Amino acid sequence: MASQGTKRSYEQMETDGERQNATEIRASVGKMIGGIGRFYIQMCTELKLSDYEGRLIQNSLTIERMVLSAFDERRNKYLEEHPSAGKDPKKTGGPIYRRVNGKWMRELILYDKEEIRRIWRQANNGDDATAGLTHMMIWHSNLNDATYQRTRALVRTGMDPRMCSLMQGSTLPRRSGAAGAAVKGVGTMVMELVRMIKRGINDRNFWRGENGRKTRIAYERMCNILKGKFQTAAQKAMMDQVRESRNPGNAEFEDLTFLARSALILRGSVAHKSCLPACVYGPAVASGYDFEREGYSLVGIDPFRLLQNSQVYSLIRPNENPAHKSQLVWMACHSAAFEDLRVLSFIKGTKVLPRGKLSTRGVQIASNENMETMESSTLELRSRYWAIRTRSGGNTNQQRASAGQISIQPTFSVQRNLPFDRTTIMAAFNGNTEGRTSDMRTEIIRMMESARPEDVSFQGRGVFELSDEKAASPIVPSFDMSNEGSYFFGDNAEEYDN
């Protein structure tokens, strides 16, 4: 783990906690998980779902989305002020799938948001429990990260689609708070800032007046979040320049895209947490497990152990491969979309394939898809080993990566060399080191050039047997250095459309 220093740990961010010791953190995270579980059980009762239907990941996603929508204050306010045809701002819903006479049927349900809020609060001892809501947002974000390569979004903001390893959390809503900021990748933060800068260039009043003052505060806050992700002084200094700019424009845009590229080699610290679907927490609570009393951590053995003992089902389209669908969801559960496939294969105990080789589309089923041909199958979400999630980018030494994705962002704290394609990355730096950030740029390029592919990161860190909950005997895996390590390699994943 990167030293926490003055930073709060993510469990504290996750639970809005002030400084807590490890036991208190485990208890408050457990409380959050228990609340999600209780809410899910109650919703299944309301909807009269069978046990099997309640364990269907598509039903879980609909129920999670309903509660997130019920608590989305800004959108609710907007919907009330701008009524649109056929949208009731006070209601929320989605597809629920039921097994009827041996076939899967889709039923569109509609609930009062007020009623959903009441059920959620009741499951969370009367609190709004925003930490639990954020947790579900991060699960949705991790699922998107594993399912889609955001080529269009990258290109629109002047970045290269091969930089997708920097895009963790790119679909997280803005209201996801400190826990959300911690899991956002460098590219995601750059993209958010670039969008602001572009608006400022096109709209003279963007930075002016009372609204402009708020915009400015948001801009500086985002700059500080991004600065905190960088691990070298030169990158941090460049972020200070971007933040202090009187009138952010093209120079800042250039600096930010430069920094994003540099992060492929001088990786930023991005938190990883295993956020599971509500249909995993519900049955665990129903079986009598007391998360608050037992304590829970999002970055240790607990999620692995929970998945070892969970039964989750998914709808499967006619030509999809259930094992591939399982891999997709497994990666999402562990926030591992940008991790090295060699490491993932070792931990999972079966070969993890790149996205383009998977015969599976996303987990969600569109409303126009034919239910007649839908089957369902068990998702295999178990693992051979477990490993500690990392909050750091690993040290800054790398190795060759593949054509589709030119770097990785480690999820697990496991000893290995970190793949990246130096030639491709360095070719993108057209040696432009003039301007006010020239000395920093020169320094950053120097550090990137001296990074050695064969150097090892996370020295001495290994994986653990599932029986080793105290992480007492690390097993340090050895990897084939020459092997392909990137998930979005030469990829044809669908595009994420909101």
Rank of each mutant, 00 (worst) to 15 (best):
A2M: 12
K7D: 01
R8Q: 10
M13G: 00
T15A: 04
D16C: 09
E18W: 07
T23Q: 14
K31F: 11
M32G: 04
I33L: 11
I36C: 10
G37Q: 07
G37I: 10
Q42L: 07
T45E: 13
D51V: 11
D51C: 09
G54H: 01
L56I: 15
Q58W: 09
S60L: 05
R65P: 00
M66N: 08
R74D: 05
K90I: 15
I96W: 07
Y97M: 02
R99W: 07
V100F: 09
K103Q: 06
W104D: 04
E115W: 14
L133F: 06
M137F: 10
M137N: 03
W139R: 09
N142L: 00
N142F: 03
L154F: 09
L154H: 10
T157L: 04
D160K: 05
P161A: 15
T171A: 13
G180T: 05
T188E: 05
T215L: 01
E220F: 11
M222I: 13
N224Q: 15
L226F: 11
L226C: 10
Q231M: 06
M238E: 04
M239F: 01
R246I: 06
D255F: 11
D255A: 06
L259V: 15
A263Q: 08
L266A: 11
G268R: 05
D290R: 07
L306A: 06
P318I: 14
S326M: 06
M331I: 15
F338P: 01
E339H: 05
R342T: 06
F346M: 10
I365V: 15
M371S: 13
G394Y: 04
G394M: 07
T396P: 09
Q399F: 02
Q405F: 02
S407V: 00
N417E: 08
A427I: 11
T433W: 00
G435E: 09
R436G: 10
D439V: 10
R441H: 13
E443D: 13
M447G: 08
M448P: 02
S450A: 09
V456L: 14
V456M: 15
F464M: 05
E469M: 08
A472F: 01
V476D: 01
M481D: 06
M481N: 03
S486D: 05
G490M: 08
D491V: 09
D497T: 00
